[in-house]
C-alpha cells in the first residue's frame, strides 16, 4: 500500500470538494489499496459525517450514506416497508463486513472482476483505453447485459439490486450543488473504452431515498444464487415486488443482480405484468423481457438461463408474500421448502 495523507471530514462541507479518496467502512477501498488497485495519495475519512440517520420520508425512507449495512438490515421500518432490502443486505458478505460497510460505500463498491483486481492486467475500468483483459479470459462471472467490448464486468452489490428495484434515488452533494440520480441508472454502463465515473470529482453521496412501496411492502423478495450457502458473491440474483388487487397485478418491480455493470432494472418486464394475474406463465414472460438483448460475454451463456429463472423465482416468491420473520434472513433458494 502506498503512503497517503489521512484527513477526516467531520462536516459535509469539509467532505464535499475534498481532494482524495473517500474512506467510509473501508471494506472495499482498503482492500483495493492492499492489492495495489487503488493508490490514493490522500484519504478523506467520512465515517464521522452526520449521515447515519434513517428517516421517514412520506411513507418511504431516507437513509444516510453512513448508515452501516447491519443497522439498515435490522431497522424496523426497513423490515416493515422494504423487506427485500433487508434480505439483500443479509445476503451479502458477512456479519463483520456488514457492521463496517456503509450504505454509500456499498453503492460505490468496485466490481469483483478478477482482471480489474489484478493491477498487471490491462483494464479499461481502471485505466481507460488500455483494453479489457476479461474478454477471452475466465468469464464465468461476467456480464450478460449492457456490456461492451470495453468492459464486461458486473456490479457485485446485493443491496443495490433491491434499491434499484424499489425506485431508490441517490442524493449527491457536490461543489456545484446537489443532484439526484435514480439508483437504477446511477452506475454508468461501459462504452468502448471504459466506464465513466458515477460521481464527479468532489461529489459525495449523502442519502439514499426510497419512496413509499405501497402494496408491495409485504410482497417483496430478494433471491440470490451462489456457490456457497453464505459469504459468496452472486452468480445471479433478483429483487422483485408485486402488488395485487382482485387477482391482477397493479404494481411490479424487477431488478437483476450479477448480470451487468449496474443492477439491471427491467421496466419493460414490469409493464408487461401490469393487469395480469400473478401466475408463473406471466412471470416467465416478464423474465423473458428482462433478459431481452442478453448475450454471453464469454463462457457464461448459462447465466442467461439462470438469470431468467431467478427472475421468475423472485416474482413468484414476491407474489406469495414476504414471510413474517424478525429479523430477516438472507434469501436462500432453498428457503420455503426445507424450512422457513
Amino acid at each position: 500500500m502506498n503512503l497517503f495523507d489521512y484527513t477526516r471530514a467531520d462536516t459535509l462541507g469539509a467532505a464535499v470538494g475534498a481532494e482524495g479518496a473517500l474512506l467510509a467502512g473501508g471494506t472495499n477501498l482498503l482492500d483495493l489499496m492492499k492489492i495495489g488497485v487503488a493508490t490514493p495519495s490522500r484519504l478523506v475519512d467520512v465515517t464521522r459525517l452526520p449521515l447515519s440517520q434513517i428517516e421517514d420520508h412520506g411513507g418511504g425512507l431516507r437513509i444516510g450514506a453512513m448508515v452501516r449495512n447491519a443497522d439498515l438490515a435490522r431497522h424496523p421500518q426497513v423490515l416493515a416497508r422494504f423487506p427485500a432490502v433487508a434480505e439483500a443486505l443479509l445476503s451479502g458478505a458477512s456479519a463483520q463486513l456488514r457492521n463496517a460497510a456503509t450504505t454509500g460505500g456499498n453503492v460505490m463498491q468496485s466490481t469483483r472482476c478478477s482482471y480489474f483486481m489484478d493491477p498487471l492486467s490491462p483494464c479499461n475500468r481502471r485505466e481507460p483505453g488500455t483494453g479489457c483483459s476479461a474478454i477471452g479470459g475466465e468469464t464465468r462471472n461476467h456480464a450478460i447485459l449492457g456490456w461492451t467490448s470495453g468492459c464486461i464486468a458486473t456490479h457485485p452489490s446485493d443491496l443495490c439490486v433491491a434499491l434499484a428495484a424499489f425506485d431508490a434515488v441517490v442524493e449527491i452533494a457536490g461543489p456545484a450543488g446537489t443532484r439526484e440520480v435514480p439508483m437504477a441508472t446511477f452506475h454508468p454502463l461501459p462504452d468502448a473504452n471504459g466506464v465513466p465515473p458515477a460521481l464527479a470529482a468532489g461529489e459525495v453521496i449523502t442519502h439514499i431515498r426510497l419512496p413509499d412501496p405501497g402494496g408491495m411492502a409485504r410482497h417483496a423478495r430478494y433471491v440470490k444464487l451462489r456457490e456457497r450457502t453464505s459469504f459468496a458473491f452472486a452468480i445471479v440474483s433478483a429483487a422483485a415486488g408485486i402488488a395485487v388487487q382482485d387477482n391482477r397485478i397493479v404494481a411490479a418491480r424487477l431488478a437483476l443482480g450479477g448480470v451487468a455493470a449496474r443492477p439491471w432494472r427491467s421496466t419493460g418486464a414490469e409493464a408487461a405484468l401490469l393487469g395480469q394475474p400473478p401466475i408463473e406463465t406471466n412471470f416467465a414472460r416478464a423474465a423473458e423481457l428482462a433478459l431481452q438483448g442478453a448475450a454471453p460475454s464469454g463462457n457464461n451463456a448459462a447465466k442467461i438461463v439462470l438469470a431468467r429463472r431467478i427472475a421468475v423465482r423472485a416474482l413468484t416468491l414476491a407474489a406469495a408474500g414476504t414471510p413474517d420473520r424478525m429479523p430477516a434472513l438472507p434469501a436462500s433458494v432453498f428457503e420455503g421448502d426445507d424450512h422457513g
Binding site: 478478477s114 489484478d118 498487471l120 459469504f231
Partner: peptide
C-alpha cells in the same frame, strides 16, 4: 467448491484469495 483457476493466457490465478477460492462455510 474448491477450484483454483488460472488465466490460460498469463498463467496467473484469477481467484487466489478466499473470496474467489471457496472453501465451505458454516452454513454449508
Amino acid at each position: 467448491h474448491e477450484e483454483a483457476i488460472h488465466d490460460a493466457r498469463t498463467g496467473r490465478f484469477t481467484n487466489n484469495d478466499l473470496a474467489g477460492y471457496h472453501i465451505p462455510v458454516n452454513a454449508d
